[in-house]
């Protein structure tokens, strides 16, 4: 899906084509200036699972926002999207959720449009960890939404 690549792009401004699986959870931190506020973003990059119900419940503790990432090229990464989001919302009632379609550099704008229309949920951003497109914007938006809640 590219979750780790998105975090690396955001925190370290770097990208690698090499795939390295995440075993459980990786923790990173970035301080973001949002208007008059300084936001400490502690990012829990959680290993991809077939379904969210497989994620250890303790990983949800302390979460103030969620970025749900799927791969625009892989239907298996978004075929459970509605059930996954319903489950996350049942665990984190008030947390804002950003839905992200990553790897937008690999398909055309027309295909993205078609994909948006087919999905049962609204996509917040289509991003590319490779080019950096929409990555800062997406993290800034979730930070702002967390501030507002």
């Amino acid at each position: 899906m590219g979750k780790t690549s998105l975090v690396r792009r955001f925190v370290f401004q770097e990208f690698s084509d090499e795939y390295l699986t995440t075993l459980g959870v990786r923790i990173d931190k970035k301080v973001v200036e949002l208007g008059d506020y300084t936001v400490n973003m502690i990012l829990w990059d959680i290993a991809g699972e077939v379904a969210q119900t497989k994620v250890p419940v303790s990983y949800y503790l302390g979460a103030h926002g969620v970025i749900y990432v799927f791969d625009v090229q892989r239907p298996s990464s978004f075929e459970n999207i509605k059930a996954d989001l319903d489950y996350i919302q049942s665990k984190l009632f008030d947390a804002p959720i950003c839905v992200i379609g990553n790897k937008k550099d690999l398909i055309s704008e027309g295909e993205l449009q078609k994909l948006s229309e087919q999905l049962p949920v609204e996509v917040s951003f289509f991003t590319s960890a490779k080019t950096g497109e929409n990555v800062e914007l997406m993290f800034a938006q979730i930070a702002q939404r967390m501030l507002n809640t």
Binding site: T22, L23, G24, V25, R26, I27, P56, S58, L61
Partner: peptide
Amino acid sequence: PLYFPRLDI
């Protein structure tokens, strides 16, 4: 007890 497995830190 709160258990957090597989923390890559």
